[in-house]
Design a protein around this nucleic acid. Structure first.
Lengths: 209, 209
DNA sequence: AAGGAAGTCAACCTTTCGGCCGAGGCGAAA
DNA sequence: TTTCGCCTCGGCCGAAAGGTTGACTTCCTT
């Protein structure tokens, strides 16, 4: 029999992470070599331990999960990272895979499915459940927002008026309206409130706190 | 030594719930007697097993965690329920404690803190961390929305226009505007988009899916 | 060099929204 | 019974938002 799969677990919810570790401990051929509670720690601990597989939540304080994946994969292109999160917004899925994640799992899956996914990723395969792949496909077709449009969208979600947005971004209100027009048509909605809620649903922006 | 504390765990995220169970298994004087993946199941399993302490997430499919708590406490007023969730919106905290929860913990707490909280609740005490109590106090001061205002607020979050809301609730657009006026002043915001985002932040309404 | 995407701004117009007023009905509580 | 909160509706008004079209600049890619 080969050696145990060495695992790094990154999740900011301590009790969840500890539970995950306890669950993995029940499997003979897997070992948790380190636990991270935020993104920076995940990067540092990966560097120290070079785990075979990294299980990473996307919502991490400080450096986000996506940023952590990017950093790790930049230094260690062969890193095998498995995203385990509750968010299934297409934007989150896209960014995580874009950053180099090898799998994207939701936390409603069962423990044995997780173990199977860990083995798959360890073996060099990718692991993306059909419903997740479906959402990814949907996002592929649609247009993507420009950086400036994202700036405006964030301020819309923050509840700012067009005038406020213009002041904050140092552009005229006319320009703000132009961007909002693009945003509405790209998101397929007809007003700013719909833009805000669908952006939150799709994981394009996050709600503060 | 007294008998082990008998625990029911209700959480729809299977891998998280199983992890939690694995974590509790490492403690000698606690036993998980049942696991529920949704609210109705939690109620049914409580009835069957009468656990000493119930650990419940608030976001459950079908019957919500709050509804499950209400049902359980109606039939078993002495039930000791500990909410373990990620949401710290004041409205969620309020509703859970209103429904009869004895404690409200966030998932970023550590395993040993959870065990201590379980013992506290089992001993008949309540367990509400200071930051949580703080949020609860904030909500206490403010005015609360009426049922009708909640109806309107949900449709605002759904991205409906005043005209659509009127049609859906079978009231005139003028009435809708009256309700929205109340909502804006009660939430302390100045437009519908802010109303939507702050309602989501505070846990007054949920984002579909 | 030419093309396209992105960002900027302006003018115009219609619709919607939000603020502010008043008012009636209805049911529960004092 | 009277009072109060909730729900209902109307009108008026100004402000904000959204639709449309066109134009100019920069930068990147072809």
């Amino acid at each position: 029999m080969s050696e145990a799969i060495r695992i790094l677990v990154a999740d900011d919810h301590n009790v969840v992470r500890q539970g995950l570790v306890a669950l993995i401990k029940t499997v003979p051929d897997m070992t948790v070599v380190a636990e991270a509670a935020d993104g920076a720690q995940a990067v540092e601990l990966f560097r120290q331990h070079r785990p075979d597989v990294t299980i990473m939540d996307l919502r991490l304080p400080g450096m986000s999960g996506v940023d952590a994946i990017t950093h790790i994969r930049r230094d260690f292109p062969s890193a095998r990272i498995l995203v385990l999160t509750t968010f299934d917004g297409d934007e989150n899925i896209f960014r995580a895979l874009q950053a180099g994640a090898r799998g994207y799992l939701l936390k409603d899956m069962f423990g044995d499915e997780l173990m199977e996914a860990i083995r798959s990723v360890h073996a060099g395969k990718t692991r993306i459940p059909a419903p997740i792949a479906q959402r990814l496909a949907e996002r592929m077709g649609g247009p993507s927002l420009t950086n400036r449009e994202l700036d405006v969208l964030k301020l819309i979600v923050a509840g700012k008026s067009n005038k406020d947005i213009g002041a904050e971004l140092a552009i005229s209100e006319a320009t703000v309206k132009t961007h909002i027009n693009s945003i509405l048509s790209k998101l397929g909605v007809s007003d700013r409130t719909q833009a805000a809620t669908t952006a939150l649903q799709r994981g394009i922006v996050e709600l503060p706190q």
